[in-house]
Write a protein that binds this DNA or RNA. Sequence first.
RNA 1: GCUGGCGUAGCUCAGUGGUAGAGCAGGGGUUUUGUAAACCUCAGGUCGCCCGUUCAAAUCGGGCCGCCAGCUCCA
Length: 623
Amino acid sequence: MCNVNISQESEGYLNFMEQQVKGEKDIDLEILRHSASHIMAQAVKELYPEAKLGIGPAIADGFYYDFAREAPFTPEDLAKIEEKMRSIIKADLPFLKSVVSRKDALDIFTELEEPYKLELLREIEDKEVTIYQQGSFTDLCRGPHLKSTGEARVFKLLNVAGAYWRGDERNVMLQRIYGTAFPEKEDLEKHLKNLEEAKKRDHRKLGRELGLFSIEEDVGLGLVLWHPRGAMVRKVIEDFWRDEHLKRGYELVYTPHIARSDLWRRSGHLDYFQEMMYPPMKTGAEDYLLKPMNCPFHIKIYKHKVRSYRELPIRYAELGTVYRYERSGVLHGLLRVRGFTQDDSHVFCTPEQLGDEIIGIIDLTQYMLKTFGYEEFETALSVRDPARKGDFLGDDEGWERAEASLSAALEKKNISYARMEGEATFYGPKIDIKLIDALGRGWQGPTIQLDFNLPSRLDVTYTAGDGKRREVVMIHRTVLGTMERFIGGLVEHYAGSFPTWLAPVQVRILTLSEKHEDYAREVLAQLEKKEIRAEIDSASETISYKVARAEREKIPYMLVVGDKEAKGSTVSVRERRSSHQGASKVEEFIARVEEEIKRKGLGERAPFPPVNREEEVKKGGDR
RNA sequence: GCUGGCGUAGCUCAGUGGUAGAGCAGGGGUUUUGUAAACCUCAGGUCGCCCGUUCAAAUCGGGCCGCCAGCUCCA
């Protein structure tokens, strides 16, 4: 290993203390994790001197470091690296900071044979750079770091994955090792438990177990088959969605799945979106394309006749199924698919109406998302990059006015948001809302996008009060995103235990023996009369078995019926995830459940971490 | 698309060159059950696909397909 001689001063700890005094807890974690990444890099360089360093920052849940090396890192390598890290931590090496001239730094990393560090250095314009060293390890780094390696005791390496150098797919792919570090052991254990819990909630696993959906290889990648249970959940959501839209002045439309390629040429999709579209269908005279978006159709409906300002705003809504040819590596259960149904809407209005329309949309999204049990949101306002105006369509005035309307609406609704420069679409600024789920994870939800492109491109106008034709203001918006992604997210949010109003099967009647089937059918008939989704389990099994089965299927209510119940016209009610039970008159039970469904009650959210009955039972069995 | 890992019954997983296994789920039977898994029995597999090495391949090699983690991209 190459040793480099430079004058040193220990400053890492000072930085750490300063941050602590400021009470910036996150920064503490960041320093800890960033330091852990350096310890990992040291371990890797000691074990595999041929590995070249990429970058190694702290990230939201831990840290990573990228390495260039011929041979792949195996899980066994990770164990070895962890072991080496432990010895580095035990040695309690100080993190030493040096300030050197850029030129000296170039010499140092030339001597160390670190091409990627040299590439970074060459792009730094400052005269001086900082270098951190601990033991045999030297890194170009802004810092700050811990005082010494001994302070990063609690860590774990998690996995290896490929990552393009500097995030650009035209560059070489490096090997990224992910890990995490915490101040205390309990924090790490909690984090690992969280990861496990997330795995248990995985909508792909629950989707199969609960009979919600499947994706079959011979049907096609990213194409979802909705099984009866999943289709029922979707139906309930779609009914709710339609009702809420009709209440708020939207009009429903239906549009075809394909259209002539000329339409997509005129809309600009063939210029800007072609690589995401399935190849054309040849039908002789003219090609047809599968739709990747619904907007051109809604515009055609709008343009079917001349529109007056008196008609505006016009709000068209459609659960429109679109197809996009996503790259195979990004497909992921319901969250990333190739055929999906957007809860799409296009609002056509005058510039004066824009503010109120945005507020109306925000109200609608908040109401719907809260009904589904999401309480927390993160909002971003994406605007164009002022340095790259050429990459965005439209003039300065239009962009400024649009941004002003969007931000005014957010402020009027008292919603705090992050302003994201350069994140706008090429055709206009947008508001994105992220839902935060029961595990604190973010899910892309509603998006409200202004469009400066299509109205002018497709000549979408209205006749103003002065009799002149004016270009319409067009908003694309979605509340849930897509049915696929939204339901995938809901499954994980609820860990498969849907609140009663959404549950595909709301009630299951469990017979104690064959004798009770007739009574069970009577109860079922009463439930069905009230449109409660119910079924009977009359299998020749013990009641315990049937309870276990219903619990596994996460059915909200189990009604046990036997002699006692039949005689008294009652049912023995067991709620999902609780051993609580009690006899109830059938009518009383129905009234209660009806009320719960009507108000879309959330019930108790799946506790976190949820009670794991299987483990408890096993433990109990040991005695 | 790229990097790495993985692919055995519907599901979860054993099986390291010599006749494919278990549990659960499924079918049949027995039991008629009081709140998280009764008992017996039967059936179920081109070991992802193709090519190769070998007397012999689930097992070794190559290619392809798919899945998983991540990167890039995204609703």
